[in-house]
Nucleic acid binder design. Structure first.
Lengths: 143, 143
DNA sequence: GCTAAACCCTGTAGCCGCTACAGGGTCAAG
DNA sequence: CTTGACCCTGTAGCGGCTACAGGGTTTAGC
């Protein structure tokens, strides 16, 4: 059983795409691994951990810069962790705002859906987009 | 009072950034306007309407391709509008899914927030990211 | 008439977080 | 010894803008 992994194996073990792994390396989220004589990357178990950490952070909606900060904290276990908590709080507020925005959009769409008109001329959606001043409050545009 | 608008005035009237207006023109959402002898764009009232239409569509979270379809419908008022309604339904389902994803994330964050640990070593967030298998169900990564 | 500021033009590059090539080299199984 | 699966680098694309750089034009005030 090998103690090192090729990038393909690392991808399998961590659930992260190979191209994404190389991307993380370029961006300094993952340290440059050792190389074989032919230039192949060789990873260790630590890298699997680190990559999983990143993946879970992404699943929670953290940006890569935020994840970078969190990784820095794990690298220095004696550091105070209040910055981590602040990060969570801030992110949570953003998620909440995002949910509210989407719920407003959802409500507006609900009003527009189910148009019974046969032609575009009197379609509820099209009229709403053409004529109303604004359907939703938030200035934030999603997606 | 002029019947035509410069791009700056159009931007003000429609609430859309000048650079964005030019971007929409490049992408065929807005027709190429007439030009003055010195090459300045000159717009008509119709363009304000069209641009507002686009802006409202964006505020509802539609993509530019979807908005393109909707604009096509408004250009042909005799067309049936069921495609518009299908578009709304589809988009609404996506918004719903997105809201559910974010609520799952929000719940997971709520569990992690408020860590009382002093050091990163035993921080709740960092431990969660390092050790747990997966915090949330959806494979979809947001933002 | 002249100058300065405010506007307009084109074209290109950057943002985020990947993803998808092209065009090569390497390694392991049969 | 070949075939296929893997790996490498570098670059370009996605969406939906936004931000320049480096120019030209118009307008307001003196």
């Amino acid at each position: 059983m090998p103690t090192t992994l090729t990038i393909g194996k690392l991808g399998q073990a961590s659930g992260v795409n190979i191209e994404t792994i190389r991307y993380y390396e370029r961006n300094g989220l993952l340290p440059s691994p050792t190389r074989s004589s032919s230039g192949y990357r060789h990873y260790r178990e630590d890298d699997v951990k680190r990559l999983r950490f990143i993946r879970r952070g992404r699943e929670l909606g953290f940006g890569l810069e935020e994840i970078r900060s969190l990784l820095q904290l794990t690298d220095q276990p004696q550091q105070p962790c209040d910055t981590a908590d602040q990060l969570v709080q801030k992110h949570m507020a953003e998620v909440d705002a995002r949910i509210r925005d989407l719920q407003a959009i959802r409500a507006a769409l609900g009003q527009l859906a189910g148009c019974q008109s046969q032609t575009a001329e009197h379609c509820r959606l099209l009229e709403a987009l053409e004529e109303r001043d604004c359907c939703i409050k938030s200035g934030h545009v999603p997606d």
